[in-house]
Every structure is written in C-alpha cells, then in structure tokens.
Amino acid sequence: MANFTAADIKSLREKTGAGMLAVKNALDEADGDQAKAIEILRVKGLKGVTKREDRSTTDGLVTAHVDGGTGVLIELNSETDFVAKSDKFIELAEKVLAYVVEAGQSDVEALLAAEFDGKTLKAHIDEGGAALGEKVALRRVARVTGGSIEQYMHRTNPDLPPQVGVLLGFDGSDQAAAHDVAVHVAAMAPKYLTRDEVPEADVANERRIAEDTAKNENKPERAIPKIVEGRVNGFFKENVLLDQPFAKEPKKTVGAIVEEAGVTLTGFARFRVGS
C-alpha cells in the first residue's frame, strides 16, 4: 500500500488543482512520492489538452496592469463561466498577465511561443487548463501608452470576474474626465480614436453604400452628395470615439468633452469577453 496520508492528498490538490480521485491515483502510482505524482498528473492532464483543442472558449475574463504611462490588457478564455470565476483560473490569468507585462509585446503567437520558467507560455496555459479540466486560451493582448492611463473593468455579472475591460491613454490632469470617457468606451464600443485611423477602404465602402442607397431611394440627384456626406458622418459618429455623442451628455461629442477638460486622448483598448 502506498505510503501517503490525507494531508498529502490535500497538499497535492492545492499544488495542482486536480480532483481528489486523480490525486489519490497519482500518489498510488508514485508510491507516495509527491514530485513523481505531480509529473504523473501533468502527463495525464496534458494528454487531455489535445482532446480539448477544438472546444469553444467563449467565457473567461479580462484583466489589466497599469504602470505609469503604460497599460496592458489581456483576455483569457475558458469554456464555461464556472471555471472563469474559479480561484485557480483567476490565479492563472494573473500569472499570464505578469508574463505578458514583462515580455513587452502584444503579438499573441510570439508570446505563446516564448519561454519562461523553463517552458513556453502556451505550455503554462495548457497545464493550467489541464488542472481545470477545460481548454484555456489567451485570445488578445493590447498595450496602451500615454502620459497617464485610466483603467476601467466592468462586471456584466456580479458573480463573475470582469467581462469588459478598457484602458485609456491620455495627457492632462483631469482624471475624472478620463474615467468618464473610459466608462463611455466600455458602453459604446468605439473602434477607432480618430477619423484618420479608419482605413480608407472602409470609408470608401461606406460612401459607396450610402450613394447606392440614396439612388435606390430615388433621392434627387442634386441632393445625393449631401446625403452621402451625412451618412458617412453617421458612420464616423458610430465608430470613432472623438466623434461619438458622449454617453453622459449626448448633446456634446467625446471630443468636445475632453477639449473642455484640457485632456488629449492618446489611445485606447477595449475587450469584451467572447466578442
């Protein structure tokens, strides 16, 4: 009979996050040797990773780190909200975030292939998923810079970790105004900061659609240019942060609000889990 106690089982469960039966079987197989049992659990757990590769990861969380004028935002996905709210998953997310901050880059593929603590980030994530019994995936990473960074994390469900995260880079001293804009970004989901950031091809496509629509509506030929410009401006108001009506004061644009506050926006990132 293997030489281990209930305390050994408890200790190994805390170290690995594996279930009681899996831990007991691993200790049996390892004849009570904890290090060997951990290796057994890792091997058996990672065998399950391949089976989980095609599973959908639509739950999870967003988390962020701000240090001076740099902010990092990540989205880590799980298969279920049950796992997303677990302490083990939240700990894994913080471990991944710490590495991403240290790595200093945003390319997810490059980050997953990079090594720390003797193995790749993907291996760390896969092992975490194995312990949780679900596929876990790093979906997105964003970095935002500015004189200051405002962070806003929103819980769409009070029982879950944050599902919407915003980082807003800005120059200026009005922190309250920056916070209000970060909340606005969370709610209104702009895609671009300024009109200049919108790809020319997208603007041309919107202009073509607006013109075709006006013609199909039998609008007077002389009125079509003005109608097209109005509809393209409507596209900008929907997608460009500085052009959007400010959520707290819709008669003013976000651009007008930050100008009044003496704030210049330098960039933003917004993630919503699964979208």
Rank of each mutant, 00 (worst) to 15 (best):
A7W: 00
A7C: 03
D8Y: 00
R13W: 02
T16E: 11
T16K: 11
A18H: 13
M20Q: 06
A22N: 07
N25I: 03
N25K: 15
N25G: 01
D28K: 15
A30C: 01
D31A: 15
G45P: 13
K47Y: 09
V49P: 00
V49W: 14
T50Y: 08
R55M: 08
T57A: 09
T58K: 11
G60Y: 00
L61H: 01
G69R: 08
L73H: 05
L73E: 03
I74T: 04
N77W: 06
A84R: 00
A84T: 04
A84F: 01
D87V: 05
F89L: 11
I90V: 14
I90E: 12
V101Q: 13
E102V: 05
A103Q: 08
Q105L: 15
D107W: 04
A113M: 05
E115R: 12
E115S: 13
K119Y: 04
K119D: 13
T120N: 11
T120M: 06
K122S: 15
H124M: 09
I125N: 13
A130C: 10
A130R: 07
A131I: 03
A131F: 08
L132P: 11
E134Q: 06
E134V: 02
K135P: 02
A137Q: 07
R139M: 00
R140W: 01
R140Q: 01
A142V: 05
R143K: 14
S148T: 12
R155E: 01
N157I: 02
V166T: 11
F170K: 07
G172A: 07
D174A: 12
D174Y: 14
D174M: 12
H179E: 05
D180Y: 01
A182Y: 04
H184T: 04
A186E: 02
Y192F: 15
V198M: 05
P199I: 03
A201W: 00
A201M: 12
D202S: 11
E206D: 07
E206G: 08
R208A: 15
E211N: 14
E211D: 11
A214V: 07
A214I: 08
N216E: 14
E221P: 00
E221Y: 02
R222S: 08
A223V: 14
A223I: 13
K226P: 01
V228D: 06
E229H: 10
G230Q: 02
G230S: 05
R231S: 12
V232T: 07
F235L: 06
K237W: 04
L241W: 07
L242T: 15
L242S: 13
D243T: 03
Q244W: 06
P245F: 12
P245C: 02
P245L: 01
F246T: 07
A247Q: 14
A247E: 06
K248G: 11
E249T: 10
P250N: 03
K251A: 14
T253K: 07
A261T: 10
A261F: 07
G262W: 01
V263D: 14
T266N: 12
G267Y: 09
R270W: 10
R270V: 02
R272Q: 09
R272N: 08
V273K: 09
G274M: 05
S275K: 13
S275I: 09
